[in-house]
């Protein structure tokens, strides 16, 4: 991987990676740290990582090395810590989308990761398995359960409304 390849990865994947991590941590600075760390590792291992695998490598590194340590903090609502500089715009969410966001945060981390990688990044089951160190069947089961949970949450909201 050349320096240009690496910089392309920064431009193309930094937002994706940040979004993925942020959805887990709900903490901007922690998510930034994870992203920076992942890219540092990518740069160090640029001679070993093929360009085609760079994106999944980043997600894998970020998930394996960092997600766990923030998992314990995931119950802490740190949304209020958003800085003024951040371009994260926390718009008022309402209706189905808002409910889905809330439903997502009720999922176990592994299910959330599977769904995020599936929906946000469009990875297939096999690729998700490689990133999260799961087999294809496990990924399929986690996604199935996640969809059920999300749907049930939406049903309950719909019932209330």
């Amino acid at each position: 991987m050349t320096i240009n390849d690496y910089n392309f990865c920064v431009t193309a994947y930094a937002d994706h990676l940040f979004r993925f991590i942020f959805k887990h941590t709900q903490h901007e600075e922690n998510a930034r740290d994870v992203v920076q760390n992942a890219f540092e590792i990518l740069w160090k291992k640029r001679d070993e990582v093929e360009m085609e695998k760079a994106k999944s490598f980043l997600f894998s590194v970020a998930y394996k090395n960092k997600i766990d340590q923030f998992r314990k903090q995931s119950k802490v609502n740190l949304v209020d810590e958003f800085s003024a500089q951040t371009k994260i715009i926390n718009e008022h969410k309402s209706g189905l989308k808002d409910a889905l966001e809330k439903a997502l945060n009720t999922l176990p981390d592994i299910q959330k990761s599977c769904v995020l990688l599936r929906d946000y990044e469009g990875y297939d089951y096999k690729e998700i398995g490689e990133i999260l160190n799961l087999n294809e069947s496990q990924v399929k089961v986690y996604i199935f359960r996640a969809r059920q949970s999300l749907k049930n949450y939406l049903v309950s909201i719909e019932t209330v409304l």
Partner: peptide
């Protein structure tokens, strides 16, 4: 409802300081 469980990436959530990640020649 199952269809509604498909998440859409929030394009407004971005990594603000990509320059800090770039490697200069």
């Amino acid at each position: 409802l199952f269809g509604a469980t498909k998440l859409e990436a929030d394009e407004k959530i971005i990594f603000a300081d990509k320059e800090s990640l770039l490697q200069k020649n």
